[in-house]
Design a protein around this nucleic acid. Structure first.
Lengths: 195, 195
DNA sequence: ATTAGACTATTATTGTTTTTTAGTCCAAAC
DNA sequence: GTTTGGACTAAAAAACAATAATAGTCTAAT
């Protein structure tokens, strides 16, 4: 069982799933594109669902890694928050077919997919938490309960996902995000004169 | 053109649309149930779309009125916020078929439906604004920019609509709402010790 | 002004046939 | 002993055709 073949399969599957979605991609195609026998895929993964779950898992890890990296690059908490928002929606839009946000009820058929996405959500909240924490420590943010606020923002963002990613175009989303970033900051930033 | 007939048509249409959705209700049925000739409906409204828009418009007015009334009944801003959230989701769930939240892309075919729903959104923001304003005036809330915060909460709620109303059951939603209410208040309430 | 009903052109629905695809198996090749 | 190509089956999806339902119009009667 060579890691090389395994990666080739998963990379190919990721590309195909990303382009056509899990439903519209056949294992036969994946096998052909990955230059591997279909039987090999079944040898490794046992089922198409398992291949998908593996791809989804990797994708989520990827997104988490990239988001974390981008947030780490920034110093100022407010800026961290801003780039986090942009990164999150940017990467999620890229992976929209893999994450399967378009179709409803993939989680019904594949409960494990739901728990993988939950991992992404948890990580987002944890990133938000660390941003808020840093902001409060520096006296930039005024937040009474960091954990609750992080979860609140996380929930709100989760809501936005389906609303924004599917319908609106990129520039529209960017506008919304900057707006939201402003709102969050001006709602959170300590000691500004009330309007 | 008697108002009586008009109301009968719209009331019947509202009941049918609410039960089966706009798509699954035929004008023939509406006419039969409203004890009116189909031609009369076309005389009054010109098209099925127009009937739907009229019903939607009335429904939105209804929801706005009920939400406002419930919020007005409460004294404490925090309590106003809580009952507002519950009322909003309660009434929207009741009107889920009329508002056409389930199906995607009704707004694409009927742009006017979108603008009617926008009216509902604006009103929600305006209610939130007045709640926040009162809270700040009383020193209960600490909000740096009332308008921006009201819109932020409004946006978040809009995101939750599709996420919650469609999938989750009532008691689950209630739980989420109480949670959200808590989060909002503890994030907004002035001068609590940070956790 | 309103009605019942006939009428048409689209649009949904239904049922049937064909094709595709997930998954298995195996004999040959590496 | 792992991998491969291909043959195979059962189930799902797509394509198609036939049928029914429906939005919208028109008319003669009330």
């Amino acid at each position: 069982m060579k890691q090389e073949k395994m990666d080739s399969i998963l990379d190919t599957a990721r590309r195909m799933f990303g382009r056509y979605g899990m439903q519209k991609t056949s294992l036969h195609e994946i096998a052909r594109m990955a230059r591997v026998a279909k039987a090999t895929i079944y040898n490794y993964f046992g089922s198409k669902d398992q291949v998908y779950l593996e791809v989804l898992n990797r994708e989520v890890n990827d997104i988490i890694e990239k988001m974390s990296a981008i947030v780490d690059q920034e110093k100022a908490p407010a800026e961290k928050l801003r780039v986090f928002l942009h990164a999150k929606f940017r990467y999620m839009k890229d992976a929209i077919n893999i994450l399967n946000l378009g179709r409803e009820g993939i989680d019904n058929l594949l409960p494990k997919a739901g728990s993988i996405r939950d991992r992404l959500f948890s990580k987002e909240v944890s990133i938000l938490h660390s941003i808020l924490e840093k902001g409060v420590a520096e006296g930039i943010f005024y937040v009474s309960n960091i954990m609750l606020t992080a979860r609140a923002i996380g929930y709100a963002l989760r809501g936005f996902e389906t609303t924004w990613l599917l319908k609106e175009n990129d520039s529209e989303i960017e506008k919304h995000l900057d707006n939201l970033s402003d709102i969050l900051c001006k709602g959170i930033l300590a000691r500004r004169k009330a309007t």
